[in-house]
Design a protein around this nucleic acid. Structure first.
Lengths: 341, 341
DNA sequence: AGGCCGATTGTTAGCGTTCACAGCGCGGTT
DNA sequence: AACCGCGCTGTGAACGCTAACAATCGGCCT
């Protein structure tokens, strides 16, 4: 009476039987528990290999407390920033032995985050990373259900939740200073959508940098991250002879501005200098190559994860500390030059 | 002796007690089982709301067969195509009540896919979508472990696995025909990386379209999707007076080509016409705006999911059918014009 | 009247792990 | 000689849910 080879994948008890131990001993081996005789351990590991046994994460999560899966709430993952951050988090998570479950928001609002968080909570994720850099992010943490450990990206110093972010203020200052140092009297700004925190920060820093340099502050032009909005802004700017330097809140908008300038015969950087933000891979090959501010999204992802993991095995009521901000850097290319005369 | 309000989230048995029924009845209500008296159902639902009860997906997955989570294996989610496809799949999955777990490949190889699939299998995903359009994708399906239902994107008609893809051949033909129809004698091609199936398909279609039109087939130029590679290709092309039309395997490469041409004083479209592929959001705002082939990634995502869900509740040995390919479309912009003379 | 059926509900087993709590053998104490 | 402690291992009970089956209650058929 031989058992026919079972098509069903092996489970822990199968391994236990094959190794001649109890299922608990198998569990101990798998979880690196110290008190297992090394000979026993070997026997178990051999059986594991032999049966091609893979522990069932569902059962593991149910029985124990933690579920080796992290949740990520994200918005518009086609945009370079969020996509890059997501990738960074995923890589870091995988390196730490965690899986990643994602939920993308349809729109940037309070309910969306709440729903997303709930969906993730149902999957019993161990913790979540929220990449939803909109201004009322504070609402997000109130929406946090069962007190899942969470880390937010680019949500400013909203306080109640640990946050990781690139130093937007430093970045914007870098951009504006670069232009002022080139001799431009002032710098115009095409800002991002007002419900994004980064956009606000960049605008604020632009304004304050101009002010502290004693430069006049021209009216700000609206944008929404898209190249189209940059194009429209560019058309307006192109007619104004006072404009000699433009700081765009992101590279796509800068592309649109370049396009509009090209169309109107405004030469870059001869007539007007343009700076972007993000350093998307395409920036280097725009016409002309775009001077911009580089953000290290990989680093952001890594720090997010480090912080989250930290949170996971920390007592519930630990101090919320914010990691030092990631520092952006200026990448000077051909789209900026000295002011005329 | 009153129970203090439990900080622990409510579970099914709590709901059952509150509603005065058995836990099984609660389960039935939650799963839409027909034979529950509507009055009972109401009572249960009220209790659910009252306790803010959320079913535990882990337990659900363990007990039943299916785990409302799908896996997605993806590569380079910063690239427009994969990112857009991922987003499409995620949206569709969410709409169907599924969560999505992702694993991104570090590099495009066989082991990578195997590992990724294993990682997902451990999470007991109900099925997987593989967005890994590399040429030896056939290896991927052999790496499939326990026979998880799977759908591949852009893996050609490799056969053994259901596949969804945009009709690359039709797209490339559209591009080449557009240029030929404008009077160009032939069309040069900056192809994508050779281990990507789309790149192969586009190149093949480019070649065969030229051949069937009786046009000479110029040597193909290498590229790797990046703007940089397009730039380098453009520099080479710029020196050659015979070049009047270029078809780039994607929009980023086209951007690089445009950049190189601009730098070398080659006017687009006056001297040379350029066509890209993908229709990334930036394409419209390049200098000049790029004529390109639009792919509907949302549709791809939707079909993937439809097919996968189909597979989920189908008998194991069902015929592998391939959905009709998604049709791309030509978007004509300023980067293409009639041939000189 | 006896019996069978369908609608509704409850009961009992798992699903595959981990956790808490024993056991067992053995060397060293008291 | 009885005892404690320690290294190692096993046993039983969760974890929160679904599946399969049993039970109950009318009503209807013969």
């Amino acid at each position: 009476m031989d058992h026919p080879s079972p098509p069903r994948p092996a489970v822990m008890i199968d391994v236990a039987r094959l190794a001649g131990v109890s299922h608990q001993t198998v569990s101990r081996v798998l979880n690196g528990h110290p008190s297992v005789r090394s000979e026993t351990r070997e026997r178990v590991l051999t059986a594991v290999r032999q049966l091609n046994y893979r522990p069932n994460a569902l059962a593991r999560g149910l029985a124990g407390r933690r579920s080796r899966v992290l949740g990520v709430v994200s918005f518009d993952t086609i945009l370079y920033g969020p996509a890059a951050t997501l990738l960074g988090v995923e890589r870091a998570a995988r390196a730490a032995g965690y899986g990643v479950s994602i939920v993308t928001l349809e729109q940037l609002d309070h309910d969306g985050v709440g729903d997303a968080l709930n969906a993730l909570a149902e999957q019993s994720v161990a913790g979540v990373v929220i990449i939803a850099p909109f201004t009322n992010a504070a609402a997000a943490l109130r929406a946090l259900p069962t007190g899942i450990p969470a880390v937010v990206v680019e949500a400013g110093t909203s306080g109640a939740l640990p946050a990781i972010s690139v130093d937007q203020v430093a970045g914007a200052r870098l951009a504006v200073r670069h232009l002022l140092d080139l001799g431009h009297e002032t710098v115009w700004h095409v800002r991002g959508p007002q419900n994004w925190l980064e956009a606000r920060d960049r605008e604020d820093a632009w304004r304050s940098t101009l002010e502290s340099a004693g430069a006049p502050v021209p009216p700000v032009i609206d944008g929404d991250w898209s190249a189209r909005s940059g194009y429209e802004a560019g058309l307006r700017l192109a007619g104004d002879p006072r404009v000699t330097a433009v700081f765009c809140a992101n590279d796509q908008q800068a592309l649109g501005v370049l396009r509009a300038f090209h169309e109107r015969g405004v030469r870059v950087p001869d007539d007007v200098s343009v700076v972007g933000f993000d350093d998307i891979p395409e920036a280097e090959f725009m016409s002309p190559p775009l001077t911009t501010i580089r953000q290290d999204f990989d680093e952001v992802g890594r720090r997010c994860l480090a912080m989250l993991l930290n949170l996971l095995d920390a007592p519930p009521a630990t101090v919320v500390e914010t990691y030092p901000r990631v520092e952006p850097a200026l990448v000077a290319r051909a789209s900026t030059g000295a002011a005329k005369g």
